[in-house]
Lab assay of single mutants.
Amino acid sequence: MGFKLLSKLLVYLTASIMAIASPLAFSVDSSGEYPTVSEIPVGEVRLYQIADGVWSHIATQSFDGAVYPSNGLIVRDGDELLLIDTAWGAKNTAALLAEIEKQIGLPVTRAVSTHFHDDRVGGVDVLRAAGVATYASPSTRRLAEVEGNEIPTHSLEGLSSSGDAVRFGPVELFYPGAAHSTDNLIVYVPSASVLYGGCAIYELSRTSAGNVADADLAEWPTSIERIQQHYPEAQFVIPGHGLPGGLDLLKHTTNVVKAHTNRSVVE
């Protein structure tokens, strides 16, 4: 069995187990497998329904001669939608809004960016022009300005110390501490036991640490421990890039980060 097929099978099995364990909360999309990078042309966006009122959005972007996937989250909030992270750029984010209108038909009224990198804030200006209120932590807003990236308009308070959590509509926002970046936030959907790890969490097929220019490698494993301790009931975990899975993604990420750190020390 090929690795790609095995990865998709694991996603399907995880979703099936969740649907059985929580039949009222989960209505997993039966329309197909989780979209992969090879299936999404740059400039297009796919939506994948995880649970009743919960979707991931998947886009792709060219970077350094390669094409990478990027995940975000959409959560229903009454007759409105909360968006977590842009679709990595203005063109993708405009396509995301169009796809949401086509498939869901509810307005996106608020959006949260989970850290300051372009795959999370690139497209904020498109959201703002569409009347979406954009939010991020003060740290993310400051770092985005320093980096020359787009800056969300509103500040999220109460997320300055490791372990801080605040309720934001249908989700809980959690600051686990520094990891992929010093400002990275985690998003949890309690009604569906869905954990969105953003770039602080890796997919299972990833074996290298990737972009760690703004990471705190020493603190990252401790931050992941905080996530595990705060959300032990999480059933569906979405990484910032690639295929979702279960809580095993947290341990896998820790292993990859520690291996990278150990290699760096040896070198």
Rank of each mutant, 00 (worst) to 15 (best):
K4V: 04
S7H: 08
L9M: 10
I17S: 09
I20M: 11
A21S: 10
L24V: 13
V28R: 08
V28Y: 15
V28L: 07
S30M: 15
G32M: 06
G32Y: 12
E33D: 09
E33Q: 08
T36A: 14
P41Y: 08
V42D: 15
E44K: 11
R46A: 08
L47C: 01
Y48R: 12
Q49C: 06
Q49H: 10
A51P: 03
S56F: 15
Q61T: 09
S62D: 07
D64M: 08
D64S: 12
V67E: 15
Y68N: 08
I74V: 08
I74A: 04
V75I: 08
V75A: 06
R76M: 11
A87L: 03
A98E: 14
Q103D: 13
G105I: 03
L106M: 15
P107L: 08
T109D: 06
A111T: 09
S113D: 02
H117T: 00
D118V: 05
D118A: 06
D119R: 00
R120K: 02
G122E: 08
D125H: 09
V126Y: 09
T134E: 01
Y135P: 00
A136E: 04
P138R: 08
T140E: 04
R141E: 03
E145Y: 12
V146Y: 13
E150S: 01
E150N: 05
P152V: 02
P152Q: 00
G163P: 04
G163E: 09
G169F: 06
V171T: 06
G177D: 05
A178W: 07
D183V: 03
D183F: 02
D183Y: 05
D183R: 00
V187R: 01
Y188I: 02
V189K: 00
S191K: 11
A192I: 07
V194A: 06
V194H: 03
V194W: 01
L195V: 06
G198S: 06
I201Y: 02
Y202K: 07
Y202F: 14
L204Q: 13
N211H: 06
V212N: 07
A213H: 11
D214H: 09
A215E: 06
D216L: 06
S223H: 02
R226E: 04
I227Q: 02
Q229P: 05
Q229T: 12
P232A: 10
G240Q: 03
H241M: 01
G242Y: 04
L243P: 09
L247C: 06
L247I: 11
H252Q: 05
H252R: 02
H252A: 04
T253M: 03
V257S: 02
H260N: 09
N262I: 10
S264N: 10
V266M: 11
